[in-house]
Write a protein that binds this DNA or RNA. Structure first.
Lengths: 139, 139
DNA sequence: CTACTTTAATCAGAGCATCTGACTAAAACA
DNA sequence: TGTTTTAGTCAGATGCTCTGATTAAAGTAG
């Protein structure tokens, strides 16, 4: 079986379940918004960087950040080092979703570990982290 | 780092590169169409099954199959065992894209194997195949 | 310092993908 | 036979993403 699909299926499972858990906890957010939000760094991140990291155009990133801003999950502040740019920053409201997401993630990992075993789980993570070195544009 | 993202990044890499290779070979197809097309079985598959496998609604699957049909990549034939249903079948034209996709897939796997090693690659595949047992709705 | 080029972001407009709800026709079942 | 379920379609709306053009600030070469 095709390794692309093998990767895609559990990746979608994680996305769907975490999103569902976050929404169930009362947050209103979409998957596209979450993908961008996830990439906002602790000191704020420029729109252009977000777009690169999330692999979408600046326009798309801007569109999603607009919505995240309206919903109160991020704010835009001027970038002190560059008058053209603004920094997107995560708000306290959005930070409240982090433990919810982490809890669901832990639940998923526990289920997976139960099914494939601790050793294989560690091997999986190791292989994926190494793959990230050559496939993640944001490093 | 979050295992959802770790899975997502290489999965997107595979999707993007295979799609790009297929398009470069002269086929006109989108990623959404390809995801459905990939799930069509050798004896034909019902729309409802395709929708389940690809995790979209019947309407969305129907929309995409319409386009695949117009482009000549699938055909709809009556299901002899059920008058309500029709079977979606891959045409010869679409089958011509298979070697192109396989070649790109082989190229990607070779690159990955070079980076993480043959052993880890085998472990990765094993772990993912087992995960598929609990995350793939289409088995 | 000025003129040119590059970069960060936004505006405008379009297309594709996806959904919910309502419907038709055939099949299954009681 | 009549009711319920299933396969698929129709209609309408929303969301996400793109290309192309524009504005303003920054960087750079003379």
């Amino acid at each position: 079986m095709n390794i692309g699909l093998l990767l895609f299926i559990p990746s979608r499972e994680v996305e769907n379940r975490i999103l569902a858990a976050v929404i169930a906890a009362g947050f209103e957010i979409t998957q596209a918004q979450a993908r961008v939000l996830m990439r906002v760094g602790s000191d704020g991140t420029r729109l252009t960087e977000l777009a690169e990291a999330a692999q979408v155009t600046k326009q798309t990133a801007g569109f999603l950040v607009d919505q995240l801003e309206k919903a109160g999950y991020v704010e835009r502040v001027p970038d002190p080092t560059d008058g053209r740019a603004r920094l997107v920053r995560v708000t306290d409201k959005a930070k409240e979703a982090v433990p919810v997401a982490n809890a669901e993630m832990a639940r998923i990992e526990a289920e997976w570990e139960q099914h494939i075993g601790k050793r294989r789980m560690a091997q999986l993570r190791e292989a994926l982290e190494m793959l990230g070195e050559i496939t993640d544009p944001y490093r």
